[in-house]
């Protein structure tokens, strides 16, 4: 997604003035943006707290400031700067975190981001965007740029099955029909489960939806989705994020408020580091039960229980 993000930002930089700050990251990815923005592309160095304060200070003067790093370094290290300097003032600052979830794999736990959007959604004025596919980046970046408020963008690696006809971007999209309940996924992990589910008969697979914007806006949840949840055999949520503050909790609360009651509720989410061993993103997904095979097997078991 980094290349798609870079292309979208180059396009944005050609349309309006933006200030782009990086925490010394972007090698072999952001050079086209660096070239396009000239003095408006600033390597702020390995100093993320200052980078966020600088972004907020620039935004106070009318700039739209984007701040980029590996995900935990952009939402975790400078948390207070995000809370105080950006969100308290509702400044037009965009945070971009690369490697959401277990995206950095065997690079180790310090580089993972499995509580990022829960933390960000706890802050006032903050919106979170979690594109599932590389093709989402152009519309997602445009939506962020058009909304002069704080936002956090979680990037990952696109896993869209080859040749898949993706519907136009929307905060909620139905990607695959199915009869075995409803699966709501967030982030690139939707791609893998999509590919695996497509191999199953419609009667044996869940209807798959992907959501890309948080916190959830209840008024804009698709009526067709709500109807399917209410009438179907179960609702399941898949996310590469811990349960606390995650999509599962947000969706359950939204449905409770709306009086929509699924027959059963299953939640596939990150737990952390269960074995104390480390590996690829696929390794951690499997260990946490959020890999496509396990998710679909558990849904089958739950629906047919």
């Amino acid at each position: 997604m980094r290349n798609a993000f870079c292309s979208a930002m180059v396009r944005l930089g050609g349309e309006r003035d933006i200030l782009f700050l990086t925490g010394d990251l972007g090698f072999m990815a952001l050079e086209p943006l660096q070239q396009a923005l000239g003095p408006r592309f600033i390597n702020a160095g390995v100093a993320e707290q200052n980078m966020i304060s600088v972004a907020a200070g620039a935004a106070s003067q009318g700039e739209q400031a984007w701040a980029y790093s590996i995900a935990p370094f952009v939402y975790g290290r400078p948390f207070e700067q995000i809370r105080n300097d950006v969100c308290l003032h509702d400044f037009d600052v965009k945070l971009v975190g690369n490697g959401g979830g277990y995206g950095y794999g065997v690079m180790g736990a310090t580089h993972h981001a499995i509580e990022d959007y829960g933390v960000m959604c706890a802050l006032q004025n903050m919106r979170v965007l979690v594109p599932a596919f590389a093709d989402d980046l152009a519309p997602v970046v445009a939506r962020m740029a058009d909304d002069p408020h704080p936002a956090y963008l979680r990037l990952g690696r696109c896993e869209l099955p080859k040749g898949w006809a993706l519907p136009d971007y929307a905060p909620w999209r139905c990607l695959l029909s199915g009869q075995a309940g409803v699966l709501v996924a967030i982030g690139p992990g939707a791609g893998g489960v999509l590919a695996a589910a497509a191999e199953l008969d419609e009667a044996a697979r869940p209807e798959i939806w992907v959501v890309s914007e948080l916190p959830l806006v209840e008024d804009s949840m698709p009526p067709a989705l709500l109807a399917r949840i209410a009438a179907g055999p179960g609702l399941f949520v898949l996310e590469e994020h811990v349960a606390q503050g995650g999509l599962g909790q947000m969706l359950a609360l939204a449905l409770l408020r709306m009086g929509v009651r699924p027959a059963r509720f299953g939640h596939f989410h990150a737990h952390g580091y269960l074995s104390g061993s480390y590996g690829s993103q696929a390794f951690h997904r499997a260990e946490n039960g959020i890999d496509p095979a396990r998710v679909l097997a558990e849904i089958d078991r739950g629906v047919n229980a």
Partner: peptide, 27 residues
């Protein structure tokens, strides 16, 4: 009073960002 402050160590970065923006904008 453009910024809410009180937690220490924030002002210099905020001020640097504002100064940078003003220079970029020729203000």
């Amino acid at each position: 009073i453009v910024f809410a402050t009180g937690s220490l160590g924030h002002g210099a970065g905020l001020a640097a960002g504002a100064a940078l923006a003003r220079r970029l904008r020729g203000e």
